[in-house]
Design a protein around this nucleic acid. Sequence first.
DNA 1: TTAAACCATGACATCAATGTCATAGTCAAG
DNA 2: CTTGACTATGACATTGATGTCATGGTTTAA
Lengths: 124, 124
Amino acid sequence: MKIGELAERTGVSVRSLRYYERQGLLAPLRQDNGYREYSVLAEEQVRTIRFYLDLGLSTEQIAGFLQCVLRNKESFCEEVLPIYQHKLKEIDGQIRLLNQIRVNLRDRISSILQERNQGQEEII
Amino acid sequence: MKIGELAERTGVSVRSLRYYERQGLLAPLRQDNGYREYSVLAEEQVRTIRFYLDLGLSTEQIAGFLQCVLRNKESFCEEVLPIYQHKLKEIDGQIRLLNQIRVNLRDRISSILQERNQGQEEII
DNA sequence: TTAAACCATGACATCAATGTCATAGTCAAG
DNA sequence: CTTGACTATGACATTGATGTCATGGTTTAA
């Protein structure tokens, strides 16, 4: 199958498919005319790539274990666990930071609303 | 005071002070030699800018209300509240997304650990 | 056969604040 | 007067996946 068909089947843009290839995540054959030729397995492979990307992993991280997880159960691939754990710490840190900001924002919003109400009361 | 001194007093790099100026957040006078001349008020102003930047607001958003909040109470500046509320929604969305990923990651990590333990037991 | 649709590659843009470097003018202390 | 510290401006880099455009070759359907 050619790149346009794979793009349509997976919902991933042609641009991204070429990018994944350059990052070492896909390795389609080439037809005589230079067109990329994807096997039927490529569709599942792209969905796997998308899954890990959506998990927040980088193409570089994914490249480190993609071949393994395509052939085995995830638990068999040694590289996966440390990457997951590292990502989890990162996510926890981000959530903590966002929560601090969130609390700060909520405080300021309610304080603004309160002061405005007091201003109204003074007028009354 | 010159830019180096302001940078040292506020902990903000010279580069960033020039950037803030270009974004319309600072407007120092110029000495005859072209050097920027900051008033003592600039120090507080920079801290205010940093505060809003740390809250996740963009220089463009900050520029929209900075002059007002420097002169009045925050609750007096009409532009602030909608920006806060918009930012809060954004943060909530980010937290939600991160939490989904977090749950996903934790599930996969524990599932890997569990499968590895089962593998061990089988050997025993 | 010809036009439309598809493919290839490479380059530039994005988002945003900041770092860094190059080049050059200015100032202060020795 | 000279050297080192400071300042000015402008340009390029960063981060990462993706969009978009330009240019040109290929295929396919009418």
